[in-house]
Amino acid sequence: MNIKYFAYIRDFTREKETTWNDPADDLQALLQQLSQHYGKKFREAVFNETEDDLNNLIIVLVNGRHVAHLDGIHTKLQASDQVSIFPVVAGG
């Protein structure tokens, strides 16, 4: 699975993207796998305190769609999916 990171999330992953072999089949489990790999700061950035939902300050896209319009943290994943992780940013 290809996973891309943006803005200050890159400070926690120290890479812009990764090819993740053997990914979990839903987003919550994938983020757990990634948190284990990247550590505490990444974990705090992507999860809420109880780790049962996404942090409000994060945007996760699966194949370009905001997971809020899919199944949120329970969005099902396939190995061919493209996952993109952003902090909430804005401009105009």
């Binding site: 891309k4 943006f6 803005a7 945007i59 896209l61 370009g64 952003f86 940013v89 401009g91 105009g92």
Partner: peptide
């Protein structure tokens, strides 16, 4: 931190 040009990636990925 990033200014408005930060939007390029998120618009592109979306």
């Amino acid at each position: 931190t990033y200014g408005t040009q930060i939007l390029i990636n998120i618009l592109n990925q979306s």
